[in-house]
Simulated assay, not measured.
Amino acid sequence: MAFDTSEGPANLALSLDAELRHAHPRTILERAYQMFGDELALVSSFGAESVVLLHLASQVSKDIPVLFLDTGHLFGQTLDYRKTLAATLGLTDVRDLRPAYQDIATADPKNNLWQTDTDGCCHIRKVLPLDRALVDFQGWITGRKRFHGGSRLSLPVVEQSDGKVKFNPLANWGKAELDAYIAEHDLPAHPLVAQGFPSIGCWPCTKPVDNPEDVRSGRWAGSQKTECGIHLARAPGAVADVGGDI
């Protein structure tokens, strides 16, 4: 299904957001798939809440490409969970995105960049790999939600991002809706959730939370960092070096 560029991604995102801002997440996913077909991808961390979006998407099409950032620093439990969920939900196209060897050799040869430059570590292990993968798509889906706070408080349901249309089907849902959906469909939980991890990223930068009301407080705890970088706005025309790698 070809992407209609006549309206432009910014205007298209605005019109879709107006149409879908109060819609059920599955309705949003169905509209996204109708618009973009095989030019639509879903980006998932296979983290604490990922099963909800993945299950919803599997009801629309099990063939939607799922992009998974295997940073090389993930918990073993996350890697196991990724395999379990893909099999349980019947996902046919889960793509493991890994950092480019050249980027690691140049920027993180000792595998300890996370200790001195978390932004740089995220850039080579997440931002660059995702940018390279998204070249093949015109629309993509995220699992972000407003109740996570920070820059996500004003999250639209549909937005323009670096010339592509980005869908946030769960933007309107809170923890109660997520928990109810998981219970209704008897979905398997990430094994670290029971150990106090309501948000799960790379093991060096993720801790259990002290305040369960702030689900992302265990990410980069003790620093001002709140996002890995894949959802941060860039200057117009600024694109990561796709010759080298979300």
Score class of each variant (00 low, 15 high):
79 L>P: 04
233 A>H: 09
101 Y>G: 12
146 R>A: 02
22 H>E: 14
216 R>N: 06
167 F>S: 10
209 V>H: 11
78 T>L: 14
138 Q>L: 01
32 A>L: 06
78 T>A: 11
168 N>H: 04
145 K>G: 00
91 L>R: 11
116 T>L: 13
151 S>Q: 13
55 H>P: 03
119 D>W: 07
227 E>L: 10
84 T>H: 06
194 A>C: 07
2 A>E: 10
72 G>F: 03
178 L>I: 04
133 A>I: 08
80 D>Q: 06
244 G>T: 14
77 Q>T: 13
49 E>T: 11
181 Y>L: 02
210 D>W: 11
154 S>A: 10
189 A>Y: 00
138 Q>R: 11
239 V>K: 10
31 R>S: 03
132 R>I: 00
68 F>K: 14
91 L>K: 05
216 R>E: 03
71 T>H: 14
35 M>W: 05
166 K>F: 11
90 G>L: 10
190 H>T: 08
115 Q>M: 06
163 G>T: 05
141 I>R: 15
13 A>Y: 07
118 T>V: 13
114 W>F: 09
141 I>Q: 04
81 Y>E: 02
173 W>H: 00
128 L>M: 13
231 H>S: 06
20 L>S: 09
86 A>V: 01
47 G>D: 01
87 A>K: 15
120 G>D: 07
208 P>Q: 12
96 D>E: 04
182 I>W: 00
92 T>N: 09
185 H>P: 00
231 H>Y: 05
96 D>W: 04
157 V>I: 10
104 I>P: 03
228 C>E: 04
153 L>W: 08
240 A>S: 15
223 S>C: 02
30 E>C: 14
162 D>E: 09
113 L>Y: 07
68 F>E: 00
160 Q>Y: 02
94 V>D: 03
198 P>N: 05
225 K>W: 10
86 A>R: 11
33 Y>G: 06
62 K>W: 01
183 A>E: 12
237 G>P: 13
140 W>L: 15
48 A>P: 05
48 A>F: 11
119 D>T: 04
75 F>P: 06
176 A>F: 08
47 G>E: 07
30 E>R: 03
49 E>M: 09
232 L>N: 15
33 Y>Q: 08
41 A>K: 07
220 W>F: 11
6 S>D: 01
84 T>M: 05
205 C>K: 05
221 A>N: 09
191 P>Q: 15
40 L>D: 06
79 L>A: 12
91 L>Q: 03
63 D>R: 15
194 A>V: 06
61 S>M: 09
14 L>R: 15
238 A>T: 05
222 G>S: 07
235 A>Y: 12
216 R>L: 07
178 L>C: 05
37 G>P: 10
39 E>R: 08
209 V>E: 02
30 E>L: 04
133 A>Q: 04
